[in-house]
Amino acid sequence: MCIPFQIRSYIALACLLSLFTCGCGAADGARTTAAPRQTQITITGASTIAPLMGEIGKRFEAEHPGIRVDVQTGGSSRGVADARNGLADIGMVSRDLKPDEADLQRFLIARDGVCIILHAENPVQSLSREQIISIYTGQTRNWKAVGGRDAPITVVNKAEGRSTLEVFATHFKINTKEIHADVVIGDNEQGVKTVAGNPLAIGYVSIGTAEVDREGGVPIRLLSLNEVEASVKNVRNGTFPMSRTLNLVTKTPPEGTIKELIDFASSSKVHDLVKELSFVPID
């Protein structure tokens, strides 16, 4: 029989790959059974914390040879669920725990302030609490009413269930159903890019992200809140009123390597990493 060359090469490729895969599998199986447990720590949860935890994990690996820290994302709810059912050793949650999550052990590793941002070209310099509420509930629809140009306001809001939305709504005592949005966004960077691309937009994002982007030349302005300047410094000293917590959670009180990692993540040894990823370290 004569199978043409390209078909043979398909078949050869497939065989080669499956052999390779099996080989890897055998090698991997042998290694994991031989090695003692708990050399690999899996962390899943909030995408906001994941880059920070990844960096902390790398530094921890450097100090503890032989240990691997695998950081996965998927959102805070996934962090809680995976920590509960044992899929992950540690969950990451970028909000305060809900009452029905009291069964979990919580460890605070950092804070994250939330501030209002405008486009840099917007002449409005400050907004009062009442003005912000009236803009977000749709009563004020034009910048003229708050001292700006005669142009419609583009209200940028976060998606339902997101923790920044909860922080914002709680602080201004707005029912999330009453918010009248023109654009709904997910991640912080999407918010910054949306406001930076539209001179008529108002939005709220994480202070750290906004500060980094403003220094990088992105045309946005951070508004003060209750006369307190929006800066990482003011979140750290507790004067800035709007912030959320970044937490690690475990199902049972942590032991061994996991405890070491959690202690390490909340120690001053990683403060430079926390700051570099534009969050606020816990003193």
Binding site: S47, T48, A50, P51, G186, D187, N188, E189, Q190, V192, G208, T209, V212, D213, G216, L277, S278
Partner: peptide
């Protein structure tokens, strides 16, 4: 995705 949407300054 992570650099453009999740990490500030990753553009």
């Amino acid at each position: 995705y992570d650099l453009s949407m999740n990490v500030a300054g990753g553009n």
